[in-house]
């Protein structure tokens, strides 16, 4: 599995309130929610993001609320992957459960710039920044989590 696109870059501690503000959580509809993805820190995100594009951020991405709406809107917008220095634990769990690919890679998160063209190979964990020509290797998932992702999410994996 691969993804690739333009990078949207954010800082440390991107919280779930800015990923999807609670004022919109009066609906569970992913498409409706996705219209407001990242609205409070980057009003242009929804307008500019294209399928396969990549979010790159600092430490503790997705901190705050347990709302699964957060990884869901990022995925629904077409984002191919989130690369961060680290993820808040509930966000990490939710992203795996709903099938949003995420990678922890502090070096890549530091060096990759906004607007760079980046591709990710999930099988090898190799991140390639074709704007700078640099490559990085992210930590692979443990097999247990790999299995959930391969089955298409937590609920699908429970059916076996």
């Amino acid at each position: 599995m691969k993804t690739g696109g333009k990078v949207f870059k954010y800082k440390d501690n991107v919280d779930t309130d800015v990923i999807i503000p609670a004022r919109y959580l009066n609906t569970p509809d992913a498409k409706e929610l996705a219209l407001h993805c990242m609205e409070d820190i980057d009003a242009g995100f929804v307008k500019n993001v294209k399928p396969g594009d990549i979010i790159v951020a600092g430490w503790n991405f997705g901190c705050g609320s347990s709302r699964e709406h957060a990884p869901l809107v990022i995925k629904t917008c077409g984002t191919g992957c989130v690369i961060a220095k680290s993820f808040a634990r509930i966000f990490y769990r939710n992203a795996i459960n709903i099938g949003l690919p995420i990678l922890e890679c502090p070096e890549a998160a530091d060096e990759i710039g906004a607007g760079d063209d980046v591709s990710v190979d999930f099988d090898t964990g190799i991140i390639t920044d074709s704007t700078t020509g640099k490559t990085y290797t992210a930590q692979p998932f443990p097999p247990f989590i790999q299995n959930i992702i391969e089955k298409g999410g937590l609920l699908a994996s429970l059916k076996d």
């Binding site: 347990s66 990884p71 509930i90 939710n94």
Partner: peptide, 17 residues
């Protein structure tokens, strides 16, 4: 705390990882 999918799985199976 967990997300909604974990809640759904927990309600169905009484278990969580």
């Amino acid at each position: 705390g967990v997300g909604s999918t974990d809640m759904a799985a927990g309600m169905a199976t009484g278990k969580a990882w």
